[in-house]
């Protein structure tokens, strides 16, 4: 095993991990800040992937249009789901209703897009960054975009008025209401924003991976894993956890491809138990 190989594995892990981090961050935001356990997360993600595929390949819509329109539709969907279906529900109610919505989404995908696997089939051009070390251009782009997006999102939460209001509602819902903030509406908006993250992740993912009707559940599981390792609500943590899992994944694939999932999930269980004291009520956004 040469140093080149180690570096290649490392970089690849980081780039793939950034994608994990990105699609997990939306879930993290929902789980931690909004206390919504969304079991339909994976389904919405693959819906975005299928829709982008159809827009680009079948309906011949330019990418820019998809990037502009899909997040808006997703925002609306997120807002409606939160404020019509999930208002004031307990964990149980949320799990059931989001599973129900996920089934509807899965069913609609099969009905309208057919269960055939879809791919944009883009062969990734390589960039040689050092002798013998080549990295994928799309992955690099996604890595940078994901990092920029998450930083922007942080800035939005920290600096903008709406962001501040969202944080206020998340921290002290009742107090915020006393201050004249329509908390329900704000949480709906925040949930809508998290759906925007799903839409953007979906648009990016379809440029790298094929999508099948069963892909949703593995994305969902991976998102849960990353979100819980990072600490619910900790979006920066989710990005780092994604990177860590990506790197671990790359090396495991090289040395013991058969047991990647077993090792990662065992680690997940151990990490959760070890840091159990610090997980409760964790809310940094």
């Amino acid at each position: 095993m040469t140093p080149q190989i180690i570096i290649t594995l490392l970089l690849n892990g980081l780039f793939t991990g950034a994608i994990y981090g990105l699609f997990a961050s939306g879930l993290t935001f929902q789980l931690g800040s909004l206390s919504i356990a969304n079991f339909g997360y994976g389904s919405w993600l693959i819906l975005a992937m299928y829709t982008t595929f159809f827009a680009l390949k079948i309906w011949n819509v330019p990418l820019a249009f998809v990037v502009l329109v899909l997040p808006v539709i997703y925002f609306a969907a997120g807002y409606v789901i939160r404020n019509r279906l999930l208002v004031g529900g307990s964990l149980n109610v949320q799990i059931l209703s989001t599973i129900g919505i996920a089934m509807i989404v899965d069913g609609l995908i099969i009905l309208f897009y057919s269960p055939a696997p879809r791919t944009l089939g883009i062969i990734e051009p390589l960039i040689e960054i050092a002798p013998g070390i080549r990295i994928g251009a799309i992955r690099l782009t996604v890595f940078i975009l994901a990092a920029v997006l998450l930083v922007l999102f942080q800035l939005f939460l920290q600096r903008s008025h709406l962001g501040k209001v969202i944080r206020a509602v998340v921290l002290e819902k009742e107090t915020a209401m006393l201050m004249g903030i329509n908390s329900e509406r704000i949480i709906g908006i925040a949930f809508g924003i998290s759906f925007v993250l799903i839409a953007i992740s979906g648009i990016m993912l379809i440029h790298l991976f094929p999508v099948t009707t069963s892909a949703g559940s593995s994305y969902q599981l991976m998102s849960f894993l990353i979100a819980t390792i990072a600490g619910l609500g900790n979006m920066r943590g989710a990005f780092y956890a994604g990177l860590a899992i990506g790197v671990l994944n790359a090396f495991l694939l090289y040395f013991a491809a058969s047991f990647v999932t077993v090792v990662i999930f065992s680690l997940f269980v151990v990490v959760l138990i070890l840091r159990s004291g610090r997980t409760a009520g964790m809310r940094h956004i």
Binding site: N12, S218, L221, A250, L253, A257, V260
Partner: peptide, 12 residues
């Protein structure tokens, strides 16, 4: 035999 949810073949 890798897992079903493989996302990156570069290591292999």
């Amino acid at each position: 035999t890798y897992g079903n949810d493989i996302a990156d073949f570069t290591p292999l």
